[in-house]
């Protein structure tokens, strides 16, 4: 855990040999790309259906969830992405990404949908306007080391979590802000913006563990 390796890739990189997509319709794509690259992953942006092929994992970035939803459905990406999630693709969603991963949305704009996958009800802008956006220290029992410095930016919260999902972090007032279910992890906050790499490491290790042992024809160049 001590190979911080901010510049350059550490000798053992958690992302080595993994091909990770970042959904790049709108939002903080660059910050996720930078984090994943620093962890040794091969990163590609995803805006079209064919770009989902051959991925070991996908990041749904922060952004405006209603816009990302609209672009997903307007570009024919919605169904293929739902299919990929149901087929077991490892996904990390932050902020808008958490909203997309939730089975239920408390206050979307008219017609807004989610991809689903985490048995959760999520509320958008749960803290209010930007004036109420904040940073805080967050205890995350599943991660080793010190508390997480987390930035909540017009952030959502998880209002209800079903039995199939596992809570990962709560605020001191008890509100749930991170959860996972199977290969899906959703966070209200932005580790990609604060240089906090532990969630991305956890995501990459899930992606590695779930990596399909049978490849449908795709020769994995240099995977070893």
């Amino acid at each position: 855990m001590s190979t911080g390796g901010s510049a350059g890739v550490p000798a053992y990189a958690p992302g080595q040999g993994l091909r990770i997509g970042v959904l790049a319709l709108q939002g903080d794509v660059r910050e996720h790309e930078r984090m994943l690259t620093s962890l040794g992953a091969q990163v590609t942006t995803v805006r079209r259906e064919h770009e989902l092929e051959g991925l070991d994992g996908l990041v749904l970035p922060g952004g405006e969830s209603s816009v990302i939803d609209k672009l997903l459905r307007g570009t024919g990406m919605y169904e293929p992405l739902v299919a990929a999630l149901r087929a077991g693709l490892s996904v990390l969603g932050t902020c808008a990404g958490l909203i997309l991963l939730a089975d239920r949305l408390a206050d979307g704009i008219t017609g807004q949908q989610t991809l689903g996958g985490i048995d959760a009800t999520v509320r958008r802008n749960a803290f209010g306007t930007q004036r109420e956006s904040f940073e805080t220290d967050l205890e995350v029992p599943a991660l080793e080391g010190p508390p997480v410095r987390a930035a909540f930016i017009r952030a959502p919260v998880i209002e209800a979590l079903g039995p199939a999902a596992t809570p990962l972090a709560t605020l001191p007032d008890g509100r749930l802000v991170a959860a996972e279910q199977g290969a899906l992890m959703g966070l209200s906050f932005h580790p990609e913006s604060t240089g906090e790499s532990r969630f991305h490491r956890r995501f990459l290790s899930t992606a590695r563990a779930r990596r399909a042992p049978v490849c449908s024809g795709g020769a994995e160049m240099g995977a070893d």
Partner: peptide
């Protein structure tokens, strides 16, 4: 951070 989320 909010501006980062508006990108694209």
């Amino acid at each position: 951070g909010l501006a980062e989320m508006l990108k694209g």
